[in-house]
Design a binder for these strands. Structure first.
Lengths: 144, 144
DNA sequence: GCTGGCCTTGACGTCAGGGTCAAGGTCTAC
DNA sequence: GTAGACCTTGACCCTGACGTCAAGGCCAGC
């Protein structure tokens, strides 16, 4: 099949397929007129790449899977190198999630504090809050 | 103070400060020779920007905080627009964390399956795992 | 007056993953 | 025999937040 059909069958674009080829992830035979020619193997290979891309893998990280398939293995993750990428990705995801959760807490704390200060500067409720709050009355902005 | 000192005091670079100026986040008076001149207000403003940047805010998202400080408020988050950015960021963080956790689960499942298949194709342990419970025998990574 | 350090503007490079054109070759159907 | 769909390579554009020159102005110290 030619590049347009392969792109359609794998839900991508011809530009993307040429880009993958330029990165060495995909290769194509050429027909007499110079057109790229692909087979079913390339469909499987691309589905593998797209799956990993959907998971957020960088293109380079899909390379072991591609090479595994090319080597004739039944699945892209049948090789140790692919499993290592899985594990590294899991570690990366865990670190990323932990980092984001830490930021989330800090931003949440900032928001809570800012809302509190806004509420104190401009009290809306009838109840008078207890003492110890005069130091925060900063809203009288100095002139410029 | 001049740009080099400001960069040093705020832990950034002169290139970054000029970039912020080009984005309209920072402005500078000029001395007779054309050098940029900054004051303490700019230090506070930059500290605000860098704090948010450390939290992963995009530069554009720091603009309300900057404008709030410029308007004379005591803190960058003293204005409603800044609080809205906080809230939007929290929602964004939550969505991002949830998405990453979902991916983490899927990648984890892929790894478990691939390890299982690798183990079946090349059985290493003496025990023959019975059907149905083999999935739990994975913790002692088979290969390597 | 000379060296070294700081400053200026402007322009290009980076990273990933492509999008979009341009100019042209090829093939099929009518 | 020609329109239109497909293919080719090559080249530039995009995002974000800067890094890295290049070429030159300004200033302090010796």
């Amino acid at each position: 099949m030619r590049i347009g059909e392969l792109a359609e069958r794998t839900g991508t674009t011809t530009r993307t397929l040429r880009y993958y080829e330029s990165r060495g992830l995909l290769s194509a035979r050429r027909t007499g007129n110079g057109y790229r020619a692909y087979g079913e193997d390339d469909v499987r290979l691309l589905r593998q790449i797209r799956l990993l891309q959907d998971f957020g893998f960088e293109l380079e990280q899909t390379r072991p899977f591609v090479e595994c398939l090319r080597a004739g293995h039944p699945a892209g993750d049948s090789c140790p190198a692919s499993l290592e990428v899985y594990r590294a990705k899991l570690a990366e995801l865990d670190a990323c999630i932990a980092g984001l959760q830490a930021v989330r807490e800090q931003v949440g704390a900032q928001l809570a504090r800012a809302e509190l200060e806004a509420g104190e500067a401009e009290p809306r409720c009838e109840l008078s809050p207890g003492p110890g709050r005069a130091a925060d009355q900063l809203s009288g902005s100095p002139a410029e």
